[in-house]
Simulated assay, not measured.
Amino acid sequence: MGNLILNEWIKVIRRKATLCMIGIMILFVIGFGVLTKFMDSQTPAPENNNWKQTIEKQLENDRSSLEQTGANNANLKMYYERQIAIKEYQLKQEIPPQNEMHMWTFVEDSQALITFAGLFTIIIAAGSVSSEFSWGTIKLLLIRPLSRSKILLSKYVTILLYGLFFLTILFVLSAIVGFLLFGAPADTVTYLAFANGEVVERNMAIHLAAQYLLSSADVLLIATMAFMISAIFRISSLAIGLSLFLLFTGNTATMLLASKFEWTKYLLFANTNLTVYFDGVPPVDGMTLSFSIIVLIVYLAIFHTLAFALFNKRDIAA
Rank of each mutant, 00 (worst) to 15 (best):
G2C: 09
N3A: 15
L4E: 10
I5M: 09
W9F: 12
I10V: 06
V12R: 15
V12H: 15
R14D: 01
A17T: 13
A17F: 03
T18L: 11
M21K: 05
G23S: 10
M25A: 09
L27A: 05
G33C: 07
G33W: 01
T36F: 04
F38K: 06
P46E: 00
K52Y: 07
Q53K: 13
I55A: 05
E56F: 07
S64I: 11
L66M: 12
L66E: 11
T69A: 13
T69M: 13
N72M: 11
K77N: 08
Y80I: 05
E81D: 12
Q83H: 06
K87D: 10
K87Y: 08
E88F: 10
L91T: 08
M101A: 08
M103I: 05
W104Q: 08
T105W: 01
F106S: 00
F106I: 01
V107T: 00
E108M: 03
D109P: 00
S110H: 02
S110C: 14
T115L: 15
F116C: 00
G118R: 04
F120Q: 08
I123H: 03
I124D: 04
G127F: 02
G127I: 02
S128D: 04
S128L: 08
E132G: 05
F133I: 10
G136Y: 04
T137F: 10
L140D: 08
L141N: 13
L142W: 01
L142D: 00
I143M: 10
L152V: 00
L152D: 08
L153W: 05
Y156R: 03
Y156C: 03
T158E: 12
T158P: 04
L161R: 01
Y162M: 07
G163R: 12
F166G: 00
F171M: 02
L173N: 02
I176G: 07
G178D: 11
F179T: 00
F182Q: 03
F182W: 05
G183D: 07
A184G: 05
D187T: 14
D187C: 04
A193N: 02
A195E: 13
G197W: 05
E198Q: 08
E201R: 07
R202F: 02
Q211S: 11
S215G: 07
S216Q: 06
V219E: 05
L221R: 14
I222C: 15
T224R: 05
T224S: 11
A226M: 06
F227W: 09
I235M: 11
I235E: 14
A239Y: 13
L242Y: 03
S243Q: 15
L244G: 14
L247R: 10
G250Q: 14
M255S: 12
M255K: 12
A258F: 11
A258H: 03
S259V: 03
K260I: 14
E262A: 12
Y266I: 12
F269H: 15
T272I: 11
N273R: 14
T275Q: 06
V281N: 01
V281L: 03
P283T: 14
V284D: 01
V284S: 04
D285T: 04
G286N: 06
T288L: 11
I293W: 07
V295M: 12
I297L: 15
I297R: 07
I297V: 15
L300N: 11
L300W: 10
H304Y: 09
L310R: 15
R314N: 06
A318Q: 02
